[in-house]
Nucleic acid binder design. Structure first.
Lengths: 106, 106
DNA sequence: ACACTCGTACGACGATCATCGAAAGGAAAG
DNA sequence: CTTTCCTTTCGATGATCGTCGTACGAGTGT
């Protein structure tokens, strides 16, 4: 029994986010693609992001983003739906997401 | 003869900067203190930053910032003077520095 | 029941990280 | 010349990172 039950998804409170964790989460090409995609489309399933890494690597990046408070994930049947915690990030670190996305390569 | 001559300080061209390296450089409390200090005061000597790490650790952080293109350093006698490459950063990644500094804890 | 899909958990790998102490260089001051 | 000061290089440490293959669990659909 490797994983007896899917562990509950942990999302830090908005007040507990640190700028360092957010910046570190954004400082990676694959994760920045994820964030930019979510900034355009509201919600997406894990497998539908235009990235080119192995599935297990993608899971790792989602965890980094989730634990930094950048994304929110909810489960629905077989899929895991992901959204950007844009409003909370904007309230806590105003302008950071959009400024970084605007500076990021296309 | 450990270091026969002080190696010339390497500063990347503004066009060669990557957002990932800049974000990674900013994603550290000590380095963010350095950047904020330089945003206020134009130029400072290495030893005059309000940080609490060992001198050799400080040298490491300056190298990370320098190689990411965030700061510029010049030697003068015994001291090494450091400046923020603000105009170049602003031209390449508009708003990133100030937005991050505004979001950073005091 | 069966196969298929979606996404994860568990190692494992080499690479990089932040930190420090010790030693040393060069410059300045005595 | 000798001492002191500023900052570096080197080497080491333990931690974390990004990547992947493999195995698996839970849902979906036939």
């Amino acid at each position: 029994m490797a994983h007896p039950r899917r562990p509950a998804l942990v999302h830090p409170e908005a007040a507990d986010l640190t700028l360092y964790a957010v910046l570190h989460a954004l400082a990676d090409p694959t994760r920045l693609i994820i964030v930019r995609t979510l900034r355009n489309d509201l919600e997406r399933a894990c497998g539908t992001f235009p990235v080119s890494v192995a599935p297990s690597t993608l899971t790792h990046h989602f965890r980094v983003l989730r634990e930094a408070g950048v994304i929110h994930q909810r489960e629905e049947g077989n899929r895991r739906w992901t959204t950007l915690r844009y409003d909370e990030l904007e309230a806590r670190f105003p302008g950071v997401i959009d400024t970084v996305l605007r500076a990021a390569p296309a």
